[in-house]
Nucleic acid binder design. Structure first.
Lengths: 277, 277
DNA sequence: ATTTAAGATGACGTGACGTCACTTTCAATC
DNA sequence: GATTGAAAGTGACGTCACGTCATCTTAAAT
């Protein structure tokens, strides 16, 4: 018993002098890697500590620490533990293939996440349009997401000519986070809130005025284009197919009525200004 | 036996007439979801088929299909099955919290992937600089990645004044994929390839000329800045701290010698042109 | 009645650990 | 030398969304 104890202490002191034995606690403090993880790495053979006490406690060397830091870095790069083991043990092969592979994977994942971001924004904005109707919004999105964006682009080309393509890009996108789109969404949401107020209510008239101002700002002089767009807007299926969120018919009708009221009021109030403005 | 058979057939025919029973094969064909997955969804209670044959075969309805498509969509958005179950069963709560949550998560993941992309490019380019030395490149990267970019920016501010900050941004970044950075990396790699050719070899001289042209193109008139930069370049530790990949001393020395050879040749060949160009 | 394809069930495996339960070891204190 | 408490060890089970067998049953056709 006594001799064993002394032997152990000598052994540890020897280790400290020679290549600085590091207990598992210090390893976790220096790297932030948990004890469990270190035991797991030992278990799968990714990082076997270079020594053990006679009692079985793991003792790490500085070389082990270096290897661990390499592992940590490569893991942050998204490599799996088996790949890391391969990369670190097979010293002679160069890594460019693995790295390029991983880079391609990372780029692919980024694309997916961007798609997800788009759909999530689209859903959020659609819910802002619709108030609280979740099911309907998802149902439409599912139809849109089923077909790839390719088909939507294709359909757009069928509907609009080249010049008008540029104008379409200026339309508020339901999944955009630019201030323009957000303002449009806000306007539509306000119109929905006042759907029961009637077309000649002052709030509705204010909203109509702001919508017209915004339309003029974006598409002044493109009356033919606006006309075509308005016809598509009235057909829910076509709206969905070019990527615009389909508005309910009642909302469109409300806007049309309010628009007429707005026009007649403009004419009675400023009959001469309307000609040149 | 016979009566049981007849009963079963009647049952199925009844189902077909009433709400269109769909066998599991058709579900997989329409959705692309595997049989195993459908059984799993049944097991965890995410999608229990609305009926079963007396023998235990699953029978899906159109409502089931709708729910399945919702599940499929939400899963593509990155939600977990338990969350999807919650979202679909608790009908009254709105989804905006979940969606915003998920959007935040998606944005966070995108950030991480961009970081990974940067480090991977940096590693690849570093290996192009160094030839094939993997360990050294990774070791340096680990040191850089250990400290956040904050400390690097901080150090940059200590070394350079505000005006020079803009010039630093024009330096080739070791992790950039812009044509400028790639050209620099190519030049350095070529210089490394001809490291044994001696400073007055014609290939080396051509490289030096191209390097000087490129330097002039980016930093003409900023001699003081270039001088400072050159001093930092000679100190590997400082180079690493501002995010430039540290070049080995021999390469820098080779370039200095080749530069002097280049200058003397220029002066002997065109002694009068050097004044105004 | 037999065949056969398709369906069901159950069990195990994946990856990188977290968590819990229980035992052993280390170093120090009495 | 005995005790003690903290830290170390091992082993087993759980995670998540299924894939992959192996084995058994059912449905529908011949």
């Amino acid at each position: 018993m006594t001799s064993r104890h002394l032997k152990l202490r000598d052994y540890i002191i020897y280790q400290r002098r020679c290549c600085a034995t590091i207990p598992i606690q210090d390893v976790t403090k220096q790297t932030g890697i948990t004890v469990r993880t270190l035991r797991y790495y030992d278990q799968i053979g990714l990082l076997n500590p270079s020594a053990k006490t006679p009692g079985g406690h793991r003792i790490y060397s500085h070389d082990d620490l270096m290897r661990l830091k390499h592992i940590q870095f490569l893991k942050q790069m998204g490599f799996r533990l088996q790949e890391i083991d391969d990369m670190l043990t097979i010293q002679d092969r160069d890594w460019s293939a693995s790295l390029n592979n991983q880079l391609a994977y990372v780029l692919e994942e980024q694309e997916k996440l961007k798609q997800m971001e788009n759909y999530l924004r689209e859903l959020l904005h659609s819910m802002a349009f619709e108030g609280e109707a979740k099911g309907a919004a998802v149902r439409k999105l599912i139809q849109l997401s089923g077909r790839s964006q390719e088909s939507r682009k294709k359909y757009r080309k069928l509907l609009f000519e080249e010049h008008e393509q540029k104008l379409v890009s200026r339309l508020p996108k339901v999944n955009g986070d630019d201030p323009d789109s957000l303002e449009w969404i806000g306007l539509i949401a306000q119109l929905r809130k006042n759907r029961d107020a009637g077309p000649d209510a002052p709030q509705v008239q204010r909203i109509v005025r702001r919508i017209l101002e915004k339309t003029d700002e974006s598409f002044s002089g493109e009356d033919e284009f606006l006309d075509k767009l308005w016809k598509i807007r009235k057909c829910p299926e076509q709206s969905a197919q070019i990527g615009m969120y389909p508005l309910e018919p009642e909302l469109l009708e409300l806007f049309e009525q309010a628009y007429e009221v707005y026009l007649t009021r403009q004419q009675t109030q400023h009959p001469e200004q309307e000609a040149d403005s």
